[in-house]
Write a protein that binds this DNA or RNA. Structure first.
Lengths: 345, 345
DNA sequence: TTCCTTTCTGGTAACGTTGCCAATAATAAC
DNA sequence: GTTATTATTGGCAACGTTACCAGAAAGGAA
């Protein structure tokens, strides 16, 4: 132990100390079966004493595996993702993987950049909430053989996994619930037009209307940004300027996101309206705190934790090569009755 | 262009196509000033056509810079962190950095593991919300020369940056506010005992009591886990079994976290108590949705976005080597008056 | 004894990039 | 015209690890 500790302890140095070759040290550290048990123990002890930690860049470069997965989301601001992120982290932690987290801000350009970054960083896989289901970006993933799971949208490509919370069912269930409670005029507050979730949500809404032979009214279908502020602004404008929704009356509002519903709560508060007396509100996602609102928000629960868990499960299976089949998982959202819908039977 | 595209386009291959050396390609791609403008343009075009993306593992290994920073949090479940995470992401995105996100779950062991992982992955710096201010783990950071910014706690070491939301001031301000509104008996719902934030919070609370010559009562100081459930359970138990708080009466509750406050809202709802009529509640953090609760939660706002922004600023400055001085930033929280405290003047 | 496994180890090269230095060509200076 | 300077390039080695192969040592079977 005469040679002094270098700036950075590496395998070579451990090898010198232990009097063996770097290969042997590498094998010992990796717990390779082709390594003597005693040697392993001895080397592990030395490594420990020297506060050795591996250089995962080198390891990844050589072995083509990084034990890292990328998580590319559309909108980090949306609390919707919190549970999913947490669930992903938990699962990954169990198997000693780490996560690189990115936000695409609903921009295809950003999403593309993020995917390329993941490729560059050599992640073993990605979990992606795509901006658009038909996105060219998904093609990049496929072409580069990057293991991936889409969440939040059913991608327009066969060769890709997804875990999808069925938005169509969500809006169908919600709309039907409203109709059954004697709401015929339902204002649909949808997300931005180009979003695939908006499209799916509209579909379910129309389907439910059709089932009950209610003629949809274009004036009652609105596309706005997914944020509390946006929902609030929009709703206040309706009352400042009746023209926006024309002279149509509605008795209830269905929102693509709980954020929009909260926006309506806020606007209502400022305008002096009362929910559900003046109109009913129903949200989607069942994000944090909606149950503590006043009135507690009736919403459609999206199983966000399961989305995270399943995504990781699928990804890991594919990374380990245990299963090469593409997984397509459809999760059903379920209505959570609370207090924001006036019930008439 | 006779040689066909390899599985993975790399610098060597581009060099072959362009008829130059790898060094030249590398320089061109890095926009090195020691490279001819025309050559650069030509090479960039070829790289583009070949859908080249760099191998950042190799780049990082060689250059000792990864344009990645680690974010190690204590409790991903707490919505408190999401504004910070978002702010970090935004800032990093501007400068083409990425973030590795980890959760330590209040465990020193996990935190240690996470720090080692960051070291192993060669991140350029970390943002850390330490489990404990005196943590040995921070020593690991210092010893390994890892650039770091602590958030959420003032570390017990000089050679480290921090951006701190002053918990002591937070609880002082809140306590004073309660006292001024004629609350003498304040139940302090603190976080786990060993948490440094709990200690600071207690300090501010005691300081305020002292200022107004109110004798603190040990029975009114409670340490519980930071979650809605924990707060709710605890509070329900108080009424199921009076022994827990003895026979002391309190007229108000100060919580280390809005989560605990929400827990009390929940318990109160179930028990049939009304806030602020039966007791006042004041929270801390001003997390998402607290303003929409009923009654809107009076709380102490923590500037979470600024914490994220400043942390990244500091970190980047240190990484770029522009500034080697250690930065110690103290941010003042401010009271947000809403409706959960009964006002008596 | 010889030969064949099995167990373990060491050596070499490679992953894809960049730092460094030497070499060349082009230009400017004298 | 010679020399100094600048601009640009190529070659080599290295970052720290592991894949792969060859070979030594040990043990077992014949």
């Amino acid at each position: 132990m005469s040679s002094k500790k270098p700036k950075k302890v590496n395998i070579k140095y451990i090898a010198k100390i232990a009097g063996v070759s770097p290969s042997t040290v590498s094998r010992a550290l990796r717990d390779d079966p082709n390594a003597n048990k005693e040697t392993k123990k001895r080397i592990l002890k030395i490594a420990e004493e020297l506060d050795y930690y591996p250089n995962l860049l080198a390891k990844g470069l050589r072995s083509k595996r990084t034990k890292t997965i990328g998580v590319i989301l559309n909108d980090l601001k949306n609390p919707l993702y919190y549970d999913t992120i947490k669930a992903i982290e938990d699962k990954l932690n169990e198997v000693d993987y780490t996560m690189i987290l990115c936000d695409s801000n609903y921009s295809q350009e950003m999403e593309r950049k993020n995917i390329i970054t993941m490729l560059s960083k050599g992640v073993d896989g990605v979990i992606l909430s795509p901006v658009n289901a038909k996105s060219e970006n998904i093609k990049i993933i496929i072409e580069n053989n990057l293991k991936a799971v889409c969440i939040d949208a059913v991608p327009n490509y066969k060769n890709i996994n997804y875990v999808y919370v069925n938005h169509e069912i969500a809006s169908f269930v919600a709309t039907e619930y409203l109709i059954k409670n004697k709401h015929q005029h339902i204002l649909l507050l949808n997300g931005p037009y180009q979003l695939s979730s908006s499209k799916a949500f509209l579909k379910g809404y129309l389907k439910a209307l059709k089932k009950y032979s209610i003629k949809p009214n274009r004036a009652l279908i609105k596309y706005i940004d997914l944020s509390i502020e946006s929902g609030c602004e929009f709703f206040k404008k309706i009352y400042q300027d009746r023209k926006i929704v024309g002279n149509i009356n509605f008795t209830s509002i269905l929102c693509l996101s709980d954020l929009l519903a909260i926006g309506i709560y806020k606007a209502s508060h400022e305008l002096g309206f009362s929910i559900p007396n003046n109109y009913s509100v129903i949200g989607y996602d069942n994000i944090f705190a909606t149950e503590y609102l006043s009135p507690p928000l009736t919403t459609v629960h999206a199983p966000k934790i399961r989305v995270g868990k399943y995504s990781v499960d699928i990804l890991l299976e594919q990374i380990e090569g245990k299963d090469t089949e593409f997984k397509k998982i459809d999760l059903e959202p379920r209505l959570v009755e609370r207090g924001s819908v006036k019930k008439i039977s």
